[in-house]
Write a protein that binds this DNA or RNA. Structure first.
Lengths: 137, 137, 137, 137
DNA sequence: TTTT
DNA sequence: TTTT
């Protein structure tokens, strides 16, 4: 009975940070920048927003392979606010985007040829379940 | 490398039409109305848009159970334009929304009590794959 | 060159908090809950996510009038992470959804009749600019 | 009380078709392709969907300047089904996406330098109303 | 702190 | 053909 959806198109601020849990599951953190321009007092201001993206499993593995600092990404996911304790034992909150799928966007650069050939496979869904039936849709 | 996403919140125009294929797969068609108001020549105009929603399998079966004429729905899906031939053999096009998931919205009406108890199960995803691992997310 | 979009459907946790700046501009804060169910170790778990919505101007004024604890809302907006200093002078971050528009969803409750007559006006866009031309669209 | 939203990321199939009405208002038609891959009978199938995008006014003028065959676009808009009569007087339906805003995506190509310098201005909203107040948001 |  |  509810919807929690985030859609972002932006640029990656640094190479993805990928860790593997003991059970082999991959987790990937990506910082994604979006920016917005508006006019304040006759002056154009550009405001950049940084988003913390978290990817799991296959999605994380594919991000590890193809996403780089500077990549332009489409990301679809959900908001999640995590609670943690800082050094002083104070409760802190961090809001992240739990990615459900992502897409590499834009043309490949010239020194990118190898990866970009593989790029069509970079469109992945966390909950992907291929349609394998012989049905008219 | 592409995104095709439709998000609708509207009201259902008639009870869903559900068919079952020979292999037991359910297909459900729903007409959903969205409306928009604007002012033209100082007069308020309301424009209603009718959308053809197509659901398959589990999604179709749940729609059959819970969706009714008048229901308010959230629908998420993709645009699909089908080709068909009319009686004169002319090529025709119909654009539908292939639903990936939907949600019943709004409070239940009073004579709706039984169904509404079951409503929490009405939030379904076509590609749902429950997270069953014991992982911190 | 970027997209920063949030789409939420959820329930309001408490009556909106509205302030008016010295220049008369209204600002409204709303806590919105979305929830998600999944299965972990054969047990159904419901996870609730709380979102901080910020509305300005007309949007804030309309929210003040019509939104209440328990209201079901559709909210569309952008992610904004604000920086502030806590008592110890430490830098803190809070992520909010800056609303661009919102919609009241669901049927009115019975003791809600007066407000609900006015509800059609509750669908507002922050940047609304009515189409007033006599054009075919 | 309803939502009608389309989000597309795809590639433009041909240079935009732009017309100017007698009152000087620009209207632009763009064909946008999105594609989807899935597996049927162990074979990878790519299905391309073509969307008819309609832009008005400023949006149309900007599209005319910057969008070309092959451009990668983010488009946000609403579904609109138009009725018209074919030669035989039969009622026909065409579903289009009425664009509310669009974004050029991807890196500029090399022979694109002039336009790409201007590209930051290519992110436009149909109903844009710049925030000009000196307010903390 | 909401809702089902 | 829905809803407000």
């Amino acid at each position: 009975m509810s919807v929690n959806k985030v859609i972002l198109v932006g640029n990656v601020g640094a190479d993805p940070e990928v860790k593997y849990l003991d059970n082999g599951v991959a987790v990937c953190n990506i910082r994604l920048a979006t920016s917005e321009s508006y006019t304040r007092n006759d002056e154009k201001v550009t405001q950049t927003e940084w988003h913390s993206i978290v990817m799991w499993r296959k999605l994380a593995e594919i991000a590890e392979k193809y996403v780089k600092k500077g990549s332009q990404l489409y990301v679809e996911g959900r908001l999640r606010t995590r609670t943690w304790e800082d050094q002083d034992g104070k409760k802190r909150y961090t809001t992240e985007i739990f990615a459900d799928n992502f897409q590499m966007l834009g043309r490949r650069s010239e020194n990118d040829t190898v990866e970009s050939e593989a790029k069509p496979q970079a469109a992945v869904t966390n909950t992907a379940e291929e349609e394998t039936d012989d049905l008219p849709f």
